[in-house]
Design a binder for these strands. Sequence first.
DNA 1: AATACGTCCAACCGCTCTTAC
DNA 2: AGTAAGAGCGGTTGGACGTAT
Length: 307
Amino acid sequence: MGRAPCCDKANVKRGPWSPEEDAKLKSYIEEHGTGGNWIALPQKIGLKRCGKSCRLRWLNYLRPNIKHGGFSEEEDNIICSLYVNIGSRWSIIAAQLPGRTDNDIKNYWNTKLKKKLLGKQRKEHHAQARRAGGLKQEIKRESEDTMLAVGVISRTPHWSYEQNSWPIPVANAYSDLNNQTSSIVTATMNSQYSSFDISLTQDQLYPSTVNTITTDTCHTSNVFQGFGNFSSDLACVDPQHIDGSERLFYGMESMEIGNGSTNTTSTESTSWGDISSLVSHYEACQQRILPQEVTFEGSSYFAMQTQ
DNA sequence: AATACGTCCAACCGCTCTTAC
DNA sequence: AGTAAGAGCGGTTGGACGTAT
């Protein structure tokens, strides 16, 4: 048995809001607030609308200081950066952009930003393929692009996944470019606001990208070819390979990682603020990265998608 | 001018989460 | 602890509008 509907669907008006309805809702909420009960609100003010519809109308349109359209380059970057880190958590992303609603951002992403990103990425693919002297990486562009936009597609990792030890994605992993033989790789967890680096060995970092997202803020896009020549925007850390990784990813503010075999460098100690806790909470608790194997032309790939 | 097609975005739907009892 | 109801969220849809043919 399903749950009872929130309103009598037959007796509520649907579709676009009229200026009169807007005015009624706006003036009532400005005067009395929502009363903490959206379901009862339309009846109070004599609107033949579902409470959920009123809530949506207020939050997405009538609420003060709402901005519509005209996303700036900076906002684009924030959205891209957060999307790469936390996926389609529009409400979290919207919280970082004052005056923007989750619905607006979601629409903007789906209609414009995604295409913009894929366009840039495609150019990068072509350039890359030319450099590599082959077309192998042009394969199945359309379907791959979708996965790539979401995050990561990767070669089969060199460790096996065990239950509850799915890799944690990090942004920006790179070896010392002046030392191509270095076995130490620096991985950066970053956001628009701050970042910190951790040094990792090959066993700890899962170099993930075949092709990575390319934006103004995430501009590296390399095929992984070995640690001596490694640079990637997105990689994954095997939590079991980092001592104290729970502290790193569950409680970002401490920035302390156990000694073990991992050297730790912290460039940021306490200023992660809301976004970091949201992101880290999301990474650690909400989102398990489930690698899905994709086989193509005899090569095994793992597409990292969120559930 | 008519039609087809593509884009955009407000609104809806159905699900999960949270809270109150 | 269990349950019901409201709130919140992300995905999807439908229609208005613009552009191409």
